[in-house]
Design a protein around this nucleic acid. Structure first.
Lengths: 364, 364
DNA sequence: CAAAATGATGTTAGCGCTATCATTGCGCGA
DNA sequence: TCGCGCAATGATAGCGCTAACATCATTTTG
């Protein structure tokens, strides 16, 4: 045959490489030449060392150092259809709750040689669809995505990708695959329960206008309505005002002002984040309202500053790092051949009400 | 020839694909078959649409939708040696300063089709070397790395990678390539200057034990020593105590306690982060010391809570988002063929002292 | 002691895309 | 009318690696 099927000779004997250097980088075959073995043997020595004799392994290791070889995992991923990348899609990392999750996923996965491809979806559903398509084009071995409310297109794409998917930071009856989060609705109910228990009756909500805050607000309102029906003459009531995202102190002040305008006798304001809560406190102080005696404030997130402010902020704690750890564990299990199992693949990690000084915990 | 050199037929006419589906995913050639054109034409229609006639472009677009094609950029990256990924290496994202930078780099790059590969280096130099090697194996088109103090191995690897490198969050006389940051030493001096101007004489430092905090402490001490020499009888003095990383409130309290043990008449404590500063304030309040009358406190970072605490925290503001934006702009310029230019490729974005209520700004 | 099993290494054939060059068709000026 | 330039498209040959199978030398086994 004039043209041998081996159109790309890969002489691995000492006579050396002969394909002209295409990219300037050291390739597997260069290491192979230096070690006097075949490329495949180098590949094995690096990726499945147990299959290679000790003598060869050492020679290869020496050759790797000598040549300064850095594997090209792009090529490796293409050849093996395993990219060893996990896409993590969150609305933002400039928000310590999601940042904690990203941090702990990254930490846990990196130990096992996986890397994180970061996708920031913003708070708009249509952005999510674009980001999902973009990250899927990298053929990640798994996708972690915040939230359970996705567009039909997003769901279809994620399913078509045929990779493990973990939805986090939320609960749902109908997860795509794995689900590790908590119920925002339950948070709202629990907060209402707690504040009713403290004896408050007239509530404002200062909530960021994102889907998960909506759900917490809904849970809160549900519980309040139950209380209204149980005790119709107690004057229990709630109004909700929405703040722009991202949540800022100023947004909190504005929302608090709106609440106090429409409900001047409001006793407690519930916020969708600790940051908004700080703004609410600032607004209260600027009106010479005393927190919590005149106005109670409840945050969400238990960010690092919540315990340190004065008065210390009552809030709801979510263990984001735990979500990240569990996510990593479950993914590694799947990569390791573990089968989907709807029992253990849906985890509600719950939450914790943290009463501090911005709410009066007097018995009702 | 029995074996045509085209060992992988890619019939693009309507008769259809014939390589058996290897991975189950839709390939470029499937789209080509559906559109009745060659693979290459589809590739062009997607990546360089201006080279394709409008009629063809539309047919391809229809075929893409019809087949549900998601490009495989792993293959694309291998073929073109351009991955359209930028590696971003920071110590942590669970810290709003770095999170802001990551957020703004990601935002700015994603508009141009680039994605961020996240590498968390921790605060240890040896970890950095490993992370650098790992991310370089993905052949990113650029590397963004926090800090300028790298091991020799790291520097060598980054240089060998022959990609643009941006060092951020720091200043140096000897950058690897581009540099966008500020001088920690100058921050330390400026803080000392400011506090001396406020009339304080006896200083403690509660600093996290990381390289950049060390540099700020050094700058602070340098300025203090100058003041001592200028006014030897004023009793100007400073002691420094180190807190563990990550910086926490408790770390701040502990460091403050250590300072106050060794220098009971300390007038002002300078911290390497706002979080530590909150801890210092907490410790002061627990000792019934009044901030700022008995003890002044200075933070670093101007995190979201700094303005909202009581008393509001005096601190140093760094515009992390601006670092991210500039980084993205400079990288995109390079990708676009821009040449290195040592004048514009080294940017000191400076910082800002933000006096609030934890320091007495009385004239000295 | 032949046959089968095992361990170590090598060979081949792609993974799905794009750089590059080749080909085709068409308009246009001399 | 002929060729030239240009625009549009196609064919070919890899990018650097690994899955899968092939080979060969030992070792084990009945």
């Amino acid at each position: 045959m004039g043209r041998s099927p081996d159109s790309r000779p890969d002489r691995s004997d000492e006579s050396g490489r002969d394909r002209p250097r295409a990219t300037g980088a050291v390739r597997l075959s260069d290491v192979a030449a230096a070690a006097g073995v075949a490329s495949m043997t180098v590949s094995r020595a690096l990726n499945q060392p147990e299959l290679v004799s000790e003598r060869t392994r050492e020679r290869v290791q020496r050759a790797v150092i000598e040549t300064g070889y850095v594997p090209n995992r792009v090529a490796g991923a293409l050849a093996s259809s395993r990219s060893r990348m996990v896409a993590v899609l969150v609305p933002t990392v400039a928000h310590s709750l999601f940042a904690d999750v990203v941090q702990s996923i990254t930490d846990a996965l990196s130990v096992n040689g996986y890397q994180v491809l970061l996708g920031l979806t913003g708070y708009q559903t249509q952005d999510e669809a674009t980001v999902v398509e973009t990250v899927l084009s990298r053929r990640p071995d798994a996708v972690v995505v915040a939230g359970t409310r996705h567009s039909q297109a997003t769901r279809a794409r994620l399913k078509a990708a045929r990779v493990p998917v973990v939805e986090i930071w939320d609960m749902s009856d109908d997860p795509l695959d794995m689900l590790i989060g908590f119920s925002h609705h339950a948070v709202g109910r629990a907060v209402a329960d707690y504040l009713l228990g403290c004896g408050y009756r007239r509530f404002g909500q200062a909530m960021a206008d994102d889907p998960r805050s909506h759900e917490r607000a809904e849970g809160f309102n549900d519980r309040i309505m139950e209380a209204q029906q149980a005790r119709p003459h107690d004057g229990i009531d709630v109004i909700t005002r929405w703040a722009e995202i991202p949540a800022t102190l100023v947004g909190g002040r504005t929302a608090a002002a709106a609440v106090l305008l429409d409900m001047p006798d409001c006793e407690a304001i519930v916020c969708s984040s600790d940051t908004l809560a700080m703004g609410v406190i600032a607004e209260a102080q600027s009106r010479a309202m005393v927190v919590p005696q005149t106005l109670a404030v409840m945050g969400f997130g238990d960010m690092s500053f919540a315990a340190a402010t004065w008065p210390a902020l009552s809030t709801v704690r979510i263990d984001g790092a735990e979500i990240g750890r569990l996510t990593a564990t479950h993914l590694l299990n799947r990569f390791d051949g573990g089968e989907p199992d709807s029992d253990s693949d849906i985890i509600d990690i719950g939450f914790e009400i943290v009463p501090r000084q911005t709410t009066l915990s007097g018995a009702s």
